[in-house]
């Protein structure tokens, strides 16, 4: 059942930016739209991108804030 909620309405955590939005709700009492706008502004994206795995994967790798699978081995190796 919790997986159903995640799939139906969740921000999918570290797949996208769910953990970041959740932290703003918990740390600053921000309501959902304020939290999304704040995180989006910090990341330089639109609010709709916060639930987009494709957009967030690259941003999370660049900022080194955690991704769910291994980061590819760099060219020098």
């Amino acid at each position: 059942m919790p997986i159903s909620h995640i799939m139906a309405s969740g921000l999918t955590g570290m797949r996208a930016a769910g953990d970041l939005v959740a932290r703003m709700e918990f740390s600053e009492n921000m309501r959902i739209n304020e939290a999304k706008d704040y995180v989006a502004r910090k990341l330089g994206v639109e609010a709709i991108d916060l639930g987009d795995e494709y957009v967030m994967r690259e941003i999370r790798e660049e900022l080194d804030i955690g991704v769910l699978t291994s980061v590819r081995i760099q060219d020098e190796y």
Binding site: M7, A8, S9, G10, L11, G18, V21, A22, G51
Partner: peptide, 15 residues
């Protein structure tokens, strides 16, 4: 059978 929110409407889930 399964429905979901519109893109951009997602919210954090707690447990």
């Amino acid at each position: 059978r399964i429905v979901s929110v519109e893109p951009g409407m997602q919210v954090p889930v707690t447990h």
